[in-house]
Structures are given as C-alpha cells and as structure tokens.
Amino acid sequence: MRAVFFDAVGTLIFPEPSAPAVYAAVARWHGLDLPASEVRERFLTAYRQEEAADADRSWATSEARERDRWRTIVTSTLAGVSDPGACFAHLFEHYARPGAWRVPAAAAGVVAALSARGFVLGMGSNYDARLLTVLDGLPELAPLRDRVVVSAAVGWRKPAREFFAEVSRIAGCAPAEVLFVGDDLRNDYEGATAAGMHALLLDPDARHTHVLHRAAGLAELIS
C-alpha cells in the first residue's frame, strides 16, 4: 500500500454545530420554527432524493449541478420559510467556512501518523470548490491538501468509476496500491473496491457487520 485517501464529511470533518441545529437556526430567522429532529428527517429525505437523481444521471456532476443539488435539498428541508433563496445562500456560504467544521483529534492524529510513515495522502469527496477553502483553514489536514479530488471538478460523483480513476491518477499509484477510507458503504467502500482499490469502511455503530474490511474508528488504521 502506497497511498491512503479519505472521504471528507463524516470521515475527517464534521459540521459543528450539527447540520440540523444550523438549519433549524436559519429557519427560525426566516419565520419557521422546527425542532432539529424534524429538520434532520426532512434533510435525509431530500438528500436521498437527490442521491437517486444523481444515480439516474450515472453520477455525472459539475459545480452548477452541485449548487442546484444543495439548493433543492435546502429548499425541501426548510419548506415554509419566508425567503428560501436567502436561507440557501446563508447555508451555502456557511459551509464554505472552515469554522463550520471540526476535525476530531483522532482524525488529526491518524493523518499525522500516516504522513510521518511516508504514505501518499489525499482526500476524495462528493463536494464542490468550497471544500478547498475549508481545507485551507484546517491545518490538521495540511498533509492532504495537495491531493484533493472533488466531484464537481472531476465531473463525476462517487461511486462512479471515473471518480476513483482520478483518485488513482492524483495519487500517482495503481488502484491496487491505494486504500480508500470512508463512512458510506456504496459511495466509498463499494465504489473504491469496484475500481480495484482497497477500502476500509468506517462503521462506528456496527451497521454493516457483513463488510469484511470495516473499523469502528480511524485509530485502527495505525494500531
């Protein structure tokens, strides 16, 4: 194994405060009082619908598609606010800021340890150009910054084979020399293995016990 690439959201970076809490606060500013639990359910429904739409497009994407995708998710999640456009603009800009995200200490430690061991490190994410701005403000993830594969730039979302081909190219390695680590069974684990890579599924709640290569946490990478 020469290279280790990580998914971004849910693997190395996490929204802080939580996304439901932030969405609920923005909704209140625009006349809609929703509990965070309902926001979460609405969000998951809208997110899954957009995932299905992307699957119908064979996972093709672009910066414009990613923006439209998030506009639809926000508008559906916060249906009933007085100004949907303002809510979307606020949230889209919010998640472009490094301060909207946290890097767990364990994640930072794993990145530092793997970097010290000489692995080629990088990140592969279903995101848009905002991710680069976020990473610029997260020094713990600096070892990954030069090798970031973003779906909107590649033109394909995970689990598309074309996305993982770009990961291999950026890593400068054959697919079989790359380990891809992520928390999504289809997008990260199955997508990477179908492309000929090694994969590790982060499964802290043991929801996928049938998966051969899974871990409860990132620290298992260096134990």
Rank of each mutant, 00 (worst) to 15 (best):
V154W: 01
A152P: 02
T133Q: 14
V111F: 02
P17I: 13
R117D: 14
M197Q: 13
F43H: 15
L44K: 14
S18K: 08
G85R: 05
F43A: 06
S18Y: 08
P143R: 06
E38L: 14
M123C: 07
D146Y: 00
R214A: 06
W29I: 03
T209Y: 03
G31Y: 11
A174R: 12
D68M: 06
A100I: 10
P98G: 05
G137W: 10
V9E: 13
R2Q: 13
P204T: 09
P139S: 13
A194N: 14
V81P: 05
E41P: 02
S76E: 15
H208R: 07
D128I: 04
H213Q: 09
V149G: 00
V26K: 05
P159H: 08
G124K: 03
A19L: 15
A176P: 01
W101N: 09
L91V: 08
D184R: 14
I13T: 04
F43I: 08
R207D: 13
P104L: 09
P139Y: 10
D184C: 06
E177M: 02
R207A: 14
G80S: 11
M1Y: 05
K158T: 05
P104S: 13
A105C: 09
R40E: 15
I170N: 00
L202N: 01
R2E: 15
E177S: 01
V154P: 02
L91K: 09
T209W: 02
S58D: 15
V167Q: 01
S18P: 09
N187E: 13
L202E: 01
A199K: 02
A142H: 06
P98A: 13
F5A: 00
S151F: 04
A116P: 07
G182R: 00
L91Y: 07
A8K: 01
A19W: 07
H94R: 14
G99D: 15
R169M: 03
V39C: 12
F163C: 05
D128N: 13
T11Y: 00
F5T: 01
V181W: 00
M1S: 12
H208D: 09
N126C: 11
F88P: 02
V154H: 04
E166S: 04
S223H: 10
D56N: 09
V9G: 08
P84T: 09
R97A: 13
D54W: 03
G31W: 09
A106L: 05
L200Q: 05
A53P: 00
D136C: 05
R69W: 07
V4I: 06
F43Y: 15
E50L: 12
W101L: 08
P104C: 12
A107M: 06
R130C: 05
H210G: 12
E190Q: 15
E220W: 01
G155F: 08
E63K: 04
V148F: 02
Y47L: 12
L78H: 06
R117C: 07
A206F: 06
